[in-house]
Amino acid sequence: MSQYPQGDPAYQSTPPAGQTNFERTMGDIGGSGPLSPQQERTWATLSHVVPLALFILSAGTLGFVASLVIYLMYKDRGPFVRQNAANSLNIQIAMGIGVVISWIMILTIILSPIGVLGLIAVAIWGCVLHALAAVKANNGEWYKPPMTPDFVK
């Protein structure tokens, strides 16, 4: 007996010629055409959620990679996802600069307490901005994170 319901069209219908069920299901991931508004909102939200999760899980080292990958994959597929992915990348770049400056202060021993406070402040600032931007993206609202330079447009 199949684990899928008998009437489920995703498993009953045949895909278009030359396309497998997997390609039809996952088409928006590797495709090159424009995204639907719902897909744009989803990827715009993920452009903030994934880097935030990776930033937390990797102690601040992998969030940048996620932002860059989403930006490069989806920048030409819709203006909303492009803007959010660019914002995510800008937040990550600004956080990276803040982390490097904080570590330099920590290593100079004299400024060590200021560097630790700076490191904590940068982490909180980035997490809050990513969380706010993810909520705005999920609601379909355009948002420019405050105190974030435009390194990527």
Rank of each mutant, 00 (worst) to 15 (best):
L72P: 00
V65E: 06
G30I: 05
V69L: 15
G31E: 07
P34D: 11
V69N: 11
V69T: 10
R82S: 06
A66H: 03
R82A: 09
W43D: 03
Y71E: 01
S58V: 05
K75A: 07
M26T: 14
A85L: 08
A66T: 04
T42D: 05
Q83A: 13
Q92L: 10
L54P: 01
A86T: 03
T25Y: 15
W43V: 13
A94K: 13
I70S: 02
L62N: 02
S47V: 08
A53H: 06
T61W: 11
V65I: 15
N87W: 05
G78H: 01
H48D: 12
F22S: 09
Q38I: 07
G78W: 00
G98V: 07
I97T: 06
R82G: 01
E40R: 03
L35W: 05
L72Q: 13
M26N: 09
W43A: 03
I93G: 03
V81D: 00
S36D: 12
R77T: 06
F22A: 15
Y74E: 03
I70G: 00
I101N: 01
E40A: 07
V69M: 13
V81I: 14
G96I: 12
Q38E: 11
N90C: 12
L57T: 10
I97G: 04
G63E: 01
S36Q: 12
I70P: 00
T25H: 13
A94E: 09
P37C: 11
W43P: 01
D76Y: 04
I97V: 14
I93R: 04
T61L: 15
F22T: 08
Y71C: 01
M95Y: 10
G27L: 02
Q83N: 09
G30H: 05
L57G: 13
I91H: 02
K75V: 05
Q92C: 11
I101Q: 02
L89I: 08
S32T: 12
V65D: 05
N90P: 08
I56G: 00
T45L: 13
E23S: 08
S32K: 14
L57E: 08
L54M: 15
I91S: 04
S67L: 06
S47T: 11
V49I: 15
M73R: 14
V65K: 06
V81M: 05
V69P: 04
V65F: 11
A94Q: 14
V100F: 12
I97P: 01
Q39W: 03
K75D: 07
E23N: 06
V100K: 00
A85P: 02
L68I: 08
G30Q: 05
L35H: 04
A66L: 07
T61H: 09
M26L: 12
P51Y: 05
G31Y: 10
V50W: 01
G98F: 10
S36W: 06
L57K: 09
